[in-house]
């Protein structure tokens, strides 16, 4: 059957286009516009050219935040992905306990980020928090407001607490989709538990794990609320990640031009990494499809 060619249907997309332009494209263009100007408030702008970019590229501030951000993302990925897979492997395969586990695992994902931050902010306090008080009682020196190592551990454990479930649920879904025939074949070959994992489960999970890595990477790379509530970027600037630093610059110092330049570079890094992930994922799909 021949389809009728009717290009008028494109006009139906127009409202969406206008909406996206108004809410996303034009604001992004405004950021580009601000990044080459300076303002002292009162809506008066002065031409600055590429000064802001140059200043940021030659200052330690942005590189420091970027380094901490990359370290944070790398650490949480290195913990959450293996841990999530391990949990998924050990979850019941069916019946009441499978549903029970799924519900319990989903709980942290349902808690608003601000609340997670507040929970850990209180949980870790030495005077009233259960964790902080217990550690203090055991003689462990732990104070996330003064000790950078304690602050980092708190922020990382909090993120693991909040988001490992997501990896586990995705990995579990991947595991559930493996046909029983593979396991039966492995059993006939007397494959060890590790071989089953390495040659059957891991390859079959790879697609879903790529999505998990991408999601967790992007989320952690843009993290703001939780560390901000717990440490406020401190002590000093040891847990100041890119978003926190950006907000400090844009809303704290009201350096709109500098902040615009900062956010553009931040955006470019995210765009690059997303593109790499996307390309790798689609190419893996194509290879699997052949």
């Amino acid at each position: 059957m021949n389809k009728t060619v009717n290009h008028k249907a494109w006009f139906l997309v127009l409202p969406v286009l206008i909406l996206v332009a108004f809410s996303a494209v034009i604001p992004l263009m405004t950021v580009v516009n601000y990044s080459v100007q300076d303002t002292f408030g009162n809506n008066q702008f002065f031409w600055a050219g590429l000064e802001w970019f140059e200043e940021l590229l030659n200052s330690d501030r942005m590189w420091g935040a970027l380094g901490r951000q990359l370290a944070f993302s790398a650490i949480i990925l290195a913990i959450q992905i293996p841990l999530g897979v391990f949990i998924a492997l050990n979850m019941p395969k069916g019946g009441f306990w499978a549903s029970f586990c799924l519900v319990v695992m989903s709980l942290p994902l349902l808690i608003p980020w601000n609340v997670v931050g507040t929970i850990w902010q209180i949980f870790g306090r030495v005077d009233i928090g259960l964790l902080g008080h217990t550690l203090d009682w055991m003689g462990v020196s732990y104070n996330y407001t003064q000790n950078p190592v304690a602050a980092w551990i708190t922020v990382i454990v909090m993120d693991v607490w909040h988001w490992t479930s997501l990896v586990a649920l995705l990995a579990y879904a991947g595991l559930q989709s493996i046909p029983q025939a593979y396991y039966q074949a492995a059993k006939i070959d007397q494959a060890s538990r590790f071989s089953v994992f390495w040659y059957i489960e891991l390859p079959k999970m790879s697609g879903v794990l790529m999505i998990a890595i991408l999601l967790r990477f992007m989320d952690s790379f843009m993290i703001y609320t939780e560390p901000f509530v717990v440490t406020g970027g401190g002590p000093g600037s040891t847990t100041t990640f890119l978003s926190i630093d950006l907000v400090k610059m844009a809303l704290g110092q009201f350096d709109l031009g500098q902040a615009a330049a900062y956010s553009l570079m931040y955006f470019l890094v995210i765009l690059l990494i997303s593109w790499v992930f996307y390309t790798v994922m689609t190419n893996l799909d194509k290879r699997d499809g052949v």
């Binding site: 263009m29 580009v32 516009n33 080459v36 100007q37 303002t39 809506n43 702008f45």
Partner: peptide, 14 residues
Amino acid sequence: EWMAWTWPTAIFFV
């Protein structure tokens, strides 16, 4: 005027 557009950014986007 209130959005403070400049010629160089306009050229960039064009």
